[in-house]
Design a protein around this nucleic acid. Sequence first.
DNA 1: CGTCAGCTTGACTCATCTCAACTAGGGTGG
DNA 2: CCACCCTAGTTGAGATGAGTCAAGCTGACG
Lengths: 245, 245
Amino acid sequence: MTNSADDQANPAFCPSGLAGGTCAGCKVRSASICAALDPDELHELESLAEETYFAGRSTVLMQDDPAGSVYNITSGTVRLYKLLADGRRQIVGFLLPGDFIGLSLGERQMFSADAIEPVTVCRFARTAFAALIDQKPHLLRRLHAAATHELTVAQDHMVLLGRRGAEERIAGFLVNLRDRLLRLGRSGVTLPLPMTRQDIADYLGLTIETVSRMITKLARDRVLLVVPGGIRVLDNSRLDALVQN
Amino acid sequence: MTNSADDQANPAFCPSGLAGGTCAGCKVRSASICAALDPDELHELESLAEETYFAGRSTVLMQDDPAGSVYNITSGTVRLYKLLADGRRQIVGFLLPGDFIGLSLGERQMFSADAIEPVTVCRFARTAFAALIDQKPHLLRRLHAAATHELTVAQDHMVLLGRRGAEERIAGFLVNLRDRLLRLGRSGVTLPLPMTRQDIADYLGLTIETVSRMITKLARDRVLLVVPGGIRVLDNSRLDALVQN
DNA sequence: CGTCAGCTTGACTCATCTCAACTAGGGTGG
DNA sequence: CCACCCTAGTTGAGATGAGTCAAGCTGACG
């Protein structure tokens, strides 16, 4: 539950995006920051990278801790969240392969992150990564593009949290997940949901019961089918229609 | 209501941060992107800048429109928002002097923006600004720092929208506004509220009636006093206490 | 002096939360 | 192999915080 990157490093294990640990063979490169680099630079980046493994339910990093590393996710799913003093939790995002942790390059973590299933990452020492970026403005441009993309995603999520009803939130979540999986070349029909209902609730600003009821309702309405470990979309157009705009 | 920057340009009018239109004399420089530049570079930036005025209630830019300009606010308050097809609105932020519009440097606007009171901005052609940034990596670093700061602010707002009650939201909004005004060297006791109750409601994911009731409650509890055009904070510690964490 | 926009207040409604019981599946140990 | 437990999820019934609808207030402005 509280293992850090350093406890968990396991270079032998490799079910990840990295084929034999080379950036050139990385399956998620096109979806990530690293796509900005040419072969020479890729080799340079590779020398800084360390493939790291996190067990399911293990902690990747904690809010306010010093930021020693930045990460590029190569397989698995990570939840990012903030906690209030009384234990309320808001999940601010789920990260998929190709996503980057540590965009700000700041000295402190701005949120907590844990692996919700086994996760492999490409880990970089933050200072070394920052130094590389100072030499490669186009890598910084790419990082900045990723940060502003995250900002739009965050703003869209504010709309969801501030102005959408429960069923709309669930539909929005599923549509969003579907589209991200499609971009990764995965199926848009069977959506794996490695996160718990509680995670979904804390992401959507709902309770676990409301999430459960709304998924049941969508299943009753034949918009989707609940399958072990996820859902199957039966009617994409009706699902899309539930997400006005 | 729908005047664009070009209709509204009015170099003669100058109640703004810019003293006589020079960056060197700009009152908000230390709070903005431009603080990254040395005197020579400032002069270069100045040659790209055009001081522009927006009347209260006028539109600065519309979501999905082509992004011709980026802006640095020198005086006044701007609301950024997204609309759903059925008219629901979520305000994603209020911008104060020193804040920047167009961090992404993208070709399309990702939100709408209007002036909620008379506003002056430093306007730059987007392409010229982007070209300058390609020559000044430290300016890009600064822009990136601003973007990731906005991202943390957005995530904190997600916590507010997803997990806080109505009174907590109001208190959070006021604490946040107070701290931003203090950073700009303004009073943290008398908070001007140039936005309407409806704007506050659309920012906090509430209705206008709930905003009104909660402000009345805080006034009844002697935490604040409602004054024309804003509020006066009577008890900072109780206001802070309402915002757990 | 009348109008109008912004704001406040009250009475009632309702979507979502809370509390509680129950089900299903997976692991463990006797 | 079965009994037990544990976690995750579902469902129901009732409570409640915020929304809705409606009326009235206030100050600015013509």
